[in-house]
Design a protein around this nucleic acid. Structure first.
Lengths: 189, 189
DNA sequence: ACCAACATATACAGACTTGTCTGTTTTAAA
DNA sequence: TTTAAAACAGACAAGTCTGTATATGTTGGT
C-alpha cells in the first residue's frame, strides 16, 4: 500500500502552493517537483492547470467550512457560535501568516474567472451568510425578515472588512476590535 | 506643440491597463503598443515594470482622493460628507464596471509587494480612515477618543466589506444596503 | 507469468515575458 | 545650420510558461 496516491499528492501540493504563493505565481513545474511526480502524470489526472484551480477552490471551501463547524462544535448555537466565527478566522489569520481568504485572493488575482471557480467563490460567501443568519435566528427567534437580512449583511461586511484590513496590515487587531464591536451589537438583541 | 509627451502617454496607458486587466496580465509590449511609443522610450523613462507599478499606485491614490474631495465638495461636513463617501464609491463601482479597489486588487495580486507599493496601499487606507474620522468629529464634537476610534474602524470595515461584496457579486446592492445601515447608525449620534 | 494500467524521466514545441541593443529619424534650441 | 536630446522601429537575449510526446520502468490482478 502506497503512502499516498499520485492524484492526492498533486492536489494537496497544488492547494498548498496556490494558497501560499498565489495561482499565477505557482507553475506546473513547481507542483510536479514538490509533489514528486512526473508531468505526464499530472496531465493524466487533470486536463489543465485551470482544472487544478477548480479542484483547489472546491476542496478549500469544503475544508474551510468543515473547520468552522469543528471549531464551533462545542459552542452554544446563537451568540457563542456567532462569536466563534470571528475567533475561527482569528486563528486562521495567525496560522496562515496573514495570507488572507483564499476565495477573495483568487477573485482579485484572476478578474476573468471561469464559471465553476466563480460558483465556488459565491458558494463560499453564501455559506458564511447562512451561518450568520442561522445564529441570528437562534438569538432572536422572532426576527423580522428585513431586519434579519440587514443584520446578516452588516455582520458579513464587518467580518470581511476586518479580514481585509487584517490582511493589509498583517495584524489581528482589526479582527479583534471588530469582534468586540460585534459582541456589543448582538448584546442588545 | 505635442498632444501629449511620451512619458505622459506611457503613464496614462499603464494606469488604464493595470487597472482594467491587472498588473500581471498586462505586458510591457501591450503598454508600448497602446501608448504608441517605442520600447526604448519606455525604458528611458522607467527602469523597470515595477517602477511603473509604483507610479501607477501613487497617481491612482492621488486621483482617487482628489475625486472624493470634489465629489463631496459641496456637501456639508459631517453626516452628509460621510454619506458622500459611500455615494462616491457607488458611482465608481458603476463607472469602472465593478473592477474593485485598485489597492486591494494589487495587495492580493502581488503578495510580495515592494516597500513603496506597500506604503501606497497603507496611505490609501489611512486616507479613508482620516476622512471618516474627520466627519465623525464634526457630527459629534465631544467624541470620546476610544469610541471615535471604534466607530471609525467600524465604518471603514462596513465600507470595505460592502465594496468587496459588491465586487464579488458585480452589484451595487451591498453598497446601497450598507449606505442605509450607515445612515441609521449615525442618525443616533 | 503476463498484460494492462499507471509512473517515471526527459526532451520538445510554441508562445509568452522583461529588458537590452543597434541604428535611424524626428524635434528643438543655439 | 549645426548640434544634442529624445523618440522611433525592431531585432534580439535569456528566460519563463503550459502542454505534448516519447520511451522506459514499475506494479497489481488474473
Amino acid at each position: 500500500m502506497k503512502e499516498q496516491g499520485a492524484k492526492e499528492r498533486i492536489i494537496s501540493t497544488a492547494c498548498d502552493l496556490f494558497y501560499k504563493q498565489g495561482y499565477q505565481a505557482t507553475g506546473i513545474n513547481q507542483i510536479i517537483e514538490e509533489a514528486g511526480i512526473a508531468k505526464a502524470s499530472l496531465y493524466q489526472h487533470f486536463p489543465s492547470k485551470e482544472a487544478l484551480l477548480n479542484e483547489y477552490l472546491l476542496i478549500t471551501r469544503l475544508n474551510n467550512y468543515e473547520h468552522l463547524l469543528q471549531f464551533t462544535a462545542k459552542m452554544h448555537p446563537g451568540k457563542q457560535k456567532l462569536m466563534g466565527l470571528f475567533e475561527c478566522r482569528l486563528e486562521r489569520m495567525e496560522t496562515s501568516n496573514f495570507k488572507g481568504c483564499a476565495f477573495i485572493r483568487i477573485a482579485y488575482e484572476l478578474p476573468g474567472l471561469n464559471q465553476e471557480a466563480t460558483a465556488q467563490v459565491h458558494a463560499h460567501t453564501q455559506g458564511l451568510k447562512t451561518f450568520i443568519e442561522e445564529q441570528l435566528l437562534v438569538i432572536k427567534h422572532s426576527f423580522p425578515k428585513g431586519e434579519l437580512r440587514e443584520m446578516t449583511d452588516m455582520l458579513l461586511n464587518l467580518y470581511e472588512g476586518a479580514g481585509l484590513q487584517g490582511y493589509i496590515q498583517r495584524s489581528v487587531k482589526p479582527m479583534e476590535d471588530t469582534k468586540k464591536v460585534v459582541r456589543k451589537l448582538i448584546a442588545t438583541l
